[in-house]
Simulated assay, not measured.
Amino acid sequence: MKQSLDGMTIGFIGLGLMGKPMCANLHSAGANLVVHNRTHAVAEAMQQDGIKAVTTPVQVAELCDLVIIMTPDTTSVENVLFGEQGLSKVLHSRSLVIDMGTTAVTPTRVFASRLAECGAEYIDAPVSGGEIGAIDGDLVIMAGGSKGAIHRAQPVFDVLGKSTVHIGEVGTGQVTKAANQVIVGLNIGAVAEAFTLASGAGADLNKVREALMGGFASSRILEVHGQRMIDESFAPGGKITTQYKDLSQAIDLAAEFSQQLPATELNKSFYGELIDAGKGGLDHSALILALETHQVEK
């Protein structure tokens, strides 16, 4: 049973594929919400009893001590925090800011340090589970921050997710998410290659998937994304552009520690081809479309 958030007021910034259903779950749990989105009409459309739409991030911080950010990239997080109408203008010692998007690690640590100067606490708590997990409230949350801050955020996390792991200090949540995205990206690539092979050799992909789901190849990627590939159903649950950005961040992080991720580099290049072909808004399971262009002509 999900925890009640009755009496709590939560700020939420970023109302995209993930943000909207996350807000819906918080509201259903009893929280009052103050919401903001770069496109104000999106926030305005959500306005109802218990959900107030505002036009700037600073207005969110004026009305809420706890603010969640769910925006698409590092630059947007920085703008929300430190832009002309950013949260940092009015943050104080009772403020807790939680970034639940996928943000680069080193900037995350810088953001936390800058907010500490205002007395505010910062948690990086990226999630896994995609739009389905956001809708169902069973996201996996990877959190970095102080024990006190995580304890304070836990009732919110319990509503949004099925599990929360406190990884360590600020930034370690994003380190974990980078590892997650490497695994997700490569697994989507593995399923796409396997299906391309099986289809080319004349096998029924529905039967192939059914058989593989019963053995060591079974995975959530094969279950969900494999079915999307078979159905050619690529409405975005997680966009190609987002996967490309996340893999880029993982590669950049590896470079900071003099590491190379050769398989990830190759995987990223296929997502890049789809973006170049104007297909970046499709679900990342559409990676299989890139592999089709690499088949040898007979």
Rank of each mutant, 00 (worst) to 15 (best):
S4N: 05
L5Y: 02
G7R: 01
M8F: 01
M8V: 10
T9S: 07
T9D: 04
I10M: 14
G11P: 14
G11T: 13
F12V: 14
I13T: 12
I13A: 08
I13S: 13
G14P: 10
L15H: 13
L15I: 13
G16K: 03
L17K: 05
M18G: 02
G19P: 12
G19K: 03
G19Y: 09
P21Q: 05
P21N: 07
C23Y: 05
A24T: 07
H27A: 14
H27E: 11
H27I: 07
S28V: 02
A29V: 04
A29M: 04
N32E: 06
L33N: 08
V34F: 06
N37L: 12
N37Q: 14
R38H: 12
T39A: 12
H40E: 15
H40Q: 13
H40T: 15
V42G: 10
V42M: 10
V42T: 15
V42R: 07
A43N: 14
A43F: 12
E44G: 10
M46P: 11
D49F: 06
D49K: 12
K52R: 12
K52G: 10
A53H: 10
A53M: 08
V54R: 03
V54W: 07
V54N: 07
T55S: 15
T55N: 12
Q59W: 01
Q59V: 06
V60D: 11
A61R: 13
E62A: 12
L63H: 05
C64N: 09
D65L: 05
L66Q: 13
L66A: 08
L66E: 10
I69M: 14
M70K: 03
M70C: 12
D73H: 10
T74A: 06
T75D: 14
S76G: 08
V77C: 10
E78Q: 13
N79T: 14
N79A: 14
N79E: 15
V80W: 00
V80I: 11
V80K: 01
L81Q: 10
F82M: 09
F82V: 07
G83T: 08
G83I: 03
Q85V: 05
L87S: 11
S88R: 01
V90C: 08
V90F: 01
V90L: 09
L91W: 00
L91K: 05
H92I: 13
H92K: 15
H92G: 15
S93P: 15
R94E: 14
R94L: 10
R94N: 15
L96P: 13
V97F: 00
I98M: 05
I98R: 00
D99V: 11
M100C: 09
G101V: 03
G101L: 03
G101W: 06
G101Q: 03
T103D: 04
T103A: 00
A104G: 09
T106C: 00
P107E: 01
T108L: 04
R109V: 09
V110F: 00
V110S: 00
F111L: 10
A112G: 11
A112W: 01
S113W: 00
R114D: 09
R114G: 02
A120R: 00
